[in-house]
Design a protein around this nucleic acid. Structure first.
Lengths: 189, 189
DNA sequence: ACTGTTATTAGTACCTGGTATTAAGATCTA
DNA sequence: TAGATCTTAATACCAGGTACTAATAACAGT
């Protein structure tokens, strides 16, 4: 079944081509893969790949929400556990966009963002803002690694809450932070 | 000239509608604004607004680069001045995505990201990573405000560099931070 | 060598969301 | 009432598809 193998590899190449550049039309794909446009369409059908316009649309929508989830979401990372006023756990997988090209290590502020947003989230108040933060980055975090952050409220004084956060990768500490969070008032950030 | 006013306000509404939801077709716009589809098309022509597919495409492309510039770019914010190994200045305008809904204030980690990436950028080395950070948020920063961060290298010890960062809005201090940055090696983040 | 299956290509009708152009009415203004 | 502006209609055309039918090519098993 040589043809089947050909077909499979072509469909794989199709998949890769579209991952690399989702803006390719069937026409262009047909040229690149040296088959007819109908074959491309059958392939897309079999692979469940939508047409150009749909792909572009999904990109446009998806990028929007991804942007928000990175910069505007309530918690950076995925909230795994939350006991308001006491402790919280979140998980963040390091993606390509978070990594410094040269060092291939996650940029510090992403780890900070995870820890900071978790420290804010754990506070049981309408409005909570970071007042001060003291952070230690213990070791690099690489692409694809999953960072688990644990936040623990250690005390409070008036509307000031003290939260310590510890982030781990595979049981290894990668970040330790002490946060002071302001609750309710709009005095500071 | 009642018609002219009508036209202007309609075009303004058109503009706003598309800002709010760029995925609207001319058909839908015509319905919302209670004019014919031709009028919508003339309006788009006059306003220089491209057709739906083009808008979506631009969103898809633009969102990609925006994502990168927020999370993967070399410096968070706009680099205004840079003297490698000495000092650097960057500017960051607070956009809607950076703001906490309830507090209407910029989330701490955005200010941190600006300061941290600036502290890293100012170091004259192939690879620079944050080792420790101590940050104080002095006051809230609101939507649309422009944060100017200044980083100053205050000393070094081996491959450890000490950088202090001060961020201001309208001459008012909003963030003060002390960073320790590792240069070259891949020891820590 | 013949047959059945799978793979590929071709062709056609139709769809959405447009552009571009021409022409006809509507609306107001001087 | 004439002229300018605005709005709507109608039509031809386009890209980039879907959906379907049919013909042909390539090979496998017997």
């Amino acid at each position: 079944m040589v043809r089947t193998i050909k077909k499979q590899t072509r469909q794989q190449r199709l998949h890769v081509l579209l991952l690399d550049n989702p803006f390719l039309t069937d026409d262009e794909l047909a040229e690149k893969l040296e088959v007819s446009i109908q074959t491309i369409r059958l392939d897309r059908l079999e692979l469940g790949i939508p047409e150009l316009r749909e792909r572009v649309k999904q990109l446009a929508e998806g990028a929007n929400t991804k942007l928000k989830s990175i910069s505007g979401g309530e918690v950076v990372g995925e909230l795994v556990d939350l006991e308001l006023g006491q402790s919280a756990i979140s998980m963040l997988e390091i993606s390509t966009e978070m990594v410094l090209e040269k060092a291939r290590a996650a940029r510090g502020h992403h780890l900070f963002a995870q820890a900071n947003s978790l420290a804010v989230a754990v506070i049981d108040a309408e409005v909570a803002l970071t007042a001060t933060a003291k952070v230690k980055f213990k070791r690099q975090v690489g692409l694809g690694e999953k960072v688990v952050a644990k936040a623990q409220v250690t005390g409070s004084k008036g509307n000031r809450f003290f939260v310590s956060v510890c982030s781990m990768v595979n049981g290894e500490e990668v970040l330790a932070g002490e946060f002071v969070i302001f609750a309710k008032g709009s005095e500071e950030d």
